[in-house]
């Protein structure tokens, strides 16, 4: 009637290492050998190079970054004249207007980035939830099913968002949709792992206590399992969402929409001051969301 069992905690795999300090020293030695190997091959291939004049380049880049383009909206020249070599005026530009319209484009792109991260995270969480329930060991799902779910999650975690993005741009075309799906497919793995861990850390004695009152399986779930895991799920969701906002700023590089598109444009046109504007926006966006999500997560504990 009952499956009473002392499940032995699994023994750590020793790999034939000596115990204690000697074992740790062996590990450190292995690590040192690995580092030496990496460095040696890098040098041997002649790839350890900082270019011809790194210092000049560094100073020039820093100089460009020091004056981000959005300052021009207020301080830029209202009549910037472009002249040919013989002095004829080719074109007159109002820097303030040009940069103001660029800033508006940045605003739109920021929203798209936020959109991609938000929808992608939600989709990922929804897909990961059932898989996490299959993977969590304490729910005792039949092994083959658990292995299959674990396989799906591992693959999705192993493939980077950008790689998913490249594949998806080829399938659904350029634009935010590819970005949303790329974020969703990669984050699903992360969510699955986090969700499964919080299910595994559940107080099973409390769940058993609910079951012992004669409650039905659904009641056991909604009273014993759900109240304990929901706050953790919300916390994990905010954490991965936060992560995805960082990730989705890059997705534009491969044509999946958002700030990344403007970044790749600024880089290819060597517009470092605009790149500085964009990076400012990225930092502010990520920091604002970080502090917000941290506060919510602290309130949930």
């Amino acid at each position: 009637m009952t499956g009473l069992a002392h499940r032995q905690p699994s023994q750590p795999v020793r790999w034939g290492l000596p115990a204690g300090r000697a074992g740790f020293a062996t590990l450190v030695a292995f690590y040192a050998v690995l580092i030496a190997l990496c460095l040696a091959t890098l040098v041997a291939a002649g790839d350890l190079s900082f270019g011809r004049n790194p210092w000049d380049n560094l100073l020039k880049t820093v100089g460009d970054f020091a004056r981000p383009s959005f300052l021009d909206v207020w301080f830029g020249p209202e009549r910037l004249e472009y002249r040919s070599d013989d002095g004829a005026v080719l074109r007159v530009e109002n820097r303030r207007e040009v940069e103001a319209s660029f800033l508006a484009a940045v605003g739109r792109a920021t929203w798209v980035t936020f959109q991609i991260a938000t929808l992608g995270s939600l989709l990922a969480a929804l897909m990961a939830l059932p898989l996490a329930m299959l993977v969590a060991r304490n729910l005792r799902v039949p092994r083959p099913l658990a292995w299959a779910a674990k396989g799906v999650l591992d693959v999705s975690r192993a493939v980077h968002t950008l790689v998913f993005g490249l594949i998806l741009v080829g399938i659904v075309g350029l634009g935010p949709t590819a970005g949303v799906l790329a974020i969703a497919l990669h984050s699903m793995g992360t969510y699955g792992k986090l969700f499964a861990e919080s299910i595994e850390s559940l107080d099973m004695a409390a769940v058993d206590a609910v079951r012992a009152t004669g409650a039905g399986e659904a009641q056991v779930f909604f009273h014993g399992v759900w109240p304990s895991v929901l706050p953790q799920f919300v916390s994990h969701h905010l954490y991965v969402w936060e992560f995805n906002i960082r990730d989705s700023t890059i997705l534009g590089l491969i044509g999946a929409g958002g700030l990344g598109l403007l970044i790749s444009e600024a880089v290819s046109l060597f517009q470092w001051s605009r790149l500085a504007t964009l990076l400012n926006v990225v930092v502010v966006l990520v920091m604002a969301f970080d502090s917000l999500s941290r506060r919510i997560r602290e309130a949930l504990l």
Binding site: D203, A205, A206, A209, A212, T213, G214, H223, P227, S228
Partner: peptide
Amino acid sequence: RRDTGLLMQGLHLVP
């Protein structure tokens, strides 16, 4: 289970 009431150390409240 419904008719048997348990009061044991190993059975917790839902925290």
